[in-house]
Design a protein around this nucleic acid. Sequence first.
DNA 1: TTTTTGGTTGACACAAATTACCATTTGCAA
DNA 2: TTGCAAATGGTAATTTGTGTCAACCAAAAA
Lengths: 157, 157
Amino acid sequence: MHGQAAFKKQKQEQLHTVCRSKGLPVTVQRTVIMEALAGRKDHPTADQIYEQVKPLLSGVSRTTVYRVLEAFVAHGLAQKIGSNEAKARFDAEAVRHHHLECVCCGAIVDLPDHESYDIPLPESPDGAFQVLDYAIQFKGVCGGCQGESLKGAPLKH
Amino acid sequence: MHGQAAFKKQKQEQLHTVCRSKGLPVTVQRTVIMEALAGRKDHPTADQIYEQVKPLLSGVSRTTVYRVLEAFVAHGLAQKIGSNEAKARFDAEAVRHHHLECVCCGAIVDLPDHESYDIPLPESPDGAFQVLDYAIQFKGVCGGCQGESLKGAPLKH
DNA sequence: TTTTTGGTTGACACAAATTACCATTTGCAA
DNA sequence: TTGCAAATGGTAATTTGTGTCAACCAAAAA
């Protein structure tokens, strides 16, 4: 896939731009972690990224991976997405898009056509809340879990 | 508020109905935990509910609170909502509605007019995924955090 | 009312996920 | 190259959620 490589390159450039504009150092850790995150489409957890970069950055601290991912989110380089499981998952795609979450196995995939779901932002519906963006979380059962659900309990694999 | 009391009563009746129809006992713990959850609009975590019911049910186990809340979700009596924080939050309102989440302090409030945001469910957009429902997560800054953000860092209170 | 029975609860240990702290190292600009 | 602010590594601690099992209890049967 060439789109993959292009996306990675774009994210690396974005990382440099943001760091330079805010006076933050571009560290090896940030570069490698961004490379790892941008190369995945499965919205990994911090620990999954840690396992992935450990062989590439011998001696990385788990703490650093958590911190770097949080920093990406704080500076708009990545998104933290909320799932029903009790752990944070990250997404290098920071522009608006929507997700399909399997209620059975927890898998989260991107919705291919996000432009079909453009809705207007509510105008401060409760008074003071300033609405900036939104994300739609579709819930359902993925292909792999549909077979399983026929065998017994519908939820909780 | 009278709507509050009516909602609590409705949830208690729903609890009885569901338990009876499935042959499950209606325990004191379930009753008190439902009462606590139905009385809140801030989408509390399991531990917050635990702290709340501890004085009312002397000797409750934290494990029980976690289990009962999961049971509510499994039987459609409550919803587990995914936030950007790495912990599960619960909502006694089980019918479809949407949320406003403050990216600064993490507060989650219900969107008053959820009927304005009816969108069609995608027809298995990636092939095998069976879409059942959706929830829109609006992101923004709540009233309390707008003042804070003027003072310095925009994120992370 | 008493008995029976299967699901529930409490207590504890355990695992997973995340954060706090601090000494050391590093990026980068002067 | 040098200096400083920021980042990192390592460890410990906290928070959040799960597994196990004996004792218990709600609800139906006797």
